[in-house]
Every structure is written in C-alpha cells, then in structure tokens.
Amino acid sequence: MAISVLVLSERIAGEHPEATFELLGKGSKLAKQLGGELAVAVAGTDYPVQELGGADVILELAGLEAGAYAAPIWEAGVAAAIAASSPRVVLMSTGTVGLDLGGSLATRFGGQLASYVIDLDVDGEEILATAQLYGGKMLAEVALDSFICFATVIPGSFPADDGRSTGSPRVERIEVGEKPKAVAMAIREPETGGVDITAAPMLVSVGRGIGSSDNLELVQELADALKVPLSASRPVIDSGWLPKPHQVGKSGKKVKPSIYLSFGISGAPEHLEGMRNAEMIIACNTDPGAPIFEVAHFGTTVDLFDLVPELTERFGG
C-alpha cells in the first residue's frame, strides 16, 4: 500500500511532542479515507520507537542528529522523506519546525499549503482544511487539490490520545543526499528564574481574591504541579506579593496562552485588555456577576480556597 499521509514528528530531543500524537491520530483517519498508509518522519535514529505505534511506517531521517537544529538541514531531510514516500498529505504543527518547513517544502514540491489548520477532511479529490484567520476572528474553509498537499496544524486541534495506539510500524531509513549550507550548533535550555509569562502555554493567574501573600503559596503549588508560571492582576503586584514581570493587563503584559486559569480576579477592563485573547479562559470567582465571566469560556463560583487544593491534587501536586 502506498503512503498517503506523512506526519512530521517535531522532536528535536527528548520525547515526541504532544502535537505529534494529535497529528498521528488525525493522520490515520485521513490515511484510511485516502486508502493509504500513515507514515511518520523522525529525526535521527535514537528516538522512542514504541510510542509511534499509531503509524504504519517510520521514516528515519538519518543525519538529523538529535540535540541540535537547523532549518535547512531539516528541510533537506524531510524533503528526502517526501520524495521517497510521495504522500498525498503532509502534516506538521504550527510550532517552530512547522513554521520553518511548511512553506518552503510546499514551494519546493509545488504543492498547496494550508496554515493555522484546526480541522481536516477529505472531500472527493480534494483535501478540505478549516483554518483560523485573523487570530481566530475568522475561520476559512480551503480546498487543496494539488497532488501533494501540506497542512500546518494548530496544536490542540485534535485529541492526542487517538495517536497513541500501539502497533509495530516498519522502519525505513531515509538517506539525505543534499548538503545544506548550514550548521546546527546547539540547543539552549531556558534559564531558570526570570519568568516570561507571555511565552507560557498556560497560566495560573491570581487576583486580589487571594486575600494575602501567605495564601499565594496555595496557587503556587498548583502552578508548580502544572509546571506553568504564576501570573497576577495588578493589586497582587502592587502589594509586592509577586514581581512586576508577572502582571497581566494594561500596564502589565499581554498574554495569549492556550489556557488562562484565573482565581479571584474580577475582570476589570485593564485586566481583560491583557488576557482576553487567551484561547480558553477558565475563571473562578465567588461573585456570579463578576465581569470576568463575560470573557471566560468556563466559569465557576466555587471558593478558590476549596477549588485550588482539589486541582493541585489532580495534577500530582
């Protein structure tokens, strides 16, 4: 059977990213619809094989050493994999690798590309992509009819569990002939200490409802359990309970995480200005009339002092 869908694992070192499984889950459905196999391209040879049971074929990109990254090197590797497998659809995420390679590979292979995709389907001869435009203010339905189509998918669009099935994929080794004029030098882990709340995928945010700095520990524990930074409304910063870089809002940072979990924040306009674009806002506030519920997707009026420990418990804190 021919390979019809190729998923790129954006693993540079360590585990496969969550997005890879999301794509594998969706990819296997698409592959079925297209009547072909699902392949996953993986950098290097030293990767956790057993986790990739969702795919039928693993394409090992030899020469793409783990632990360092350069776009042209990866581009050459993935291009070789595409050339070797001739899939109908190539799936990547809108992470750094996907943003790097989507456009250039589509151009190289003369295929069509859809970016910021949140859903995919097969419609006769065409691949139908639903994509976000204008920061999610619009959705576009795009039909791709090239013989090879590319999609870069927003992480979180598909359930990852669908891609975690067990299986025993074949392993094929892809040799990269091309010599890209680039050197992958190093991977630098973030310095611990200075927080950048704007870069976090999720924030636990706390407002004056917390009462005093002593109680801050409670939410800190939850944030630690979730491995995400703590952010806050201005009164918390003003009181000196948290340093300034943690402030969200008009006079603080504008954040746009996938999840914004707020506790004891009323939702003053100055605060909303900083976080209303978060993908999902979950608000906890004992006042059912608090304006934060206007922008939140989910809300609860349970007391934060009851809720937070329960949540911490659920995330192994």
């Binding site: 969550e18 997005a19 999301e22 992480p155 979180g156 359930p159 990852a160 995928p201 999720m202 979730l226 995400v228 996938s258 999840i259 979990l261 993908e279 999902m280 806002i281 979950i282 608000a283 059912p288 519920f293 206007e294 922008v295 939140a296 997707h297 989910f298 809300g299 609860t300 009026t301 349970v302 007391d303 009851d306 809720l307 329960e310 949540l311 418990e313 659920r314 995330f315």
Partner: peptide, 24 residues
C-alpha cells in the same frame, strides 16, 4: 462563560479535563 456547577471536587474534575483536553 459556561458555568460549571457542583461541588469543589466536581468542578475541579471538569477543569482538570479541560486542561487535559488542551494537552497541557
């Protein structure tokens, strides 16, 4: 907002699900 009703523990469970569904 969609309001999550129930006890603290029930609400916590719903929120935990939401967080997991985002793969976070």
């Amino acid at each position: 907002a969609e309001m999550l009703e129930g006890s603290a523990s029930e609400v916590a469970e719903r929120i935990a699900e939401l967080i997991r569904s985002k793969g976070l």
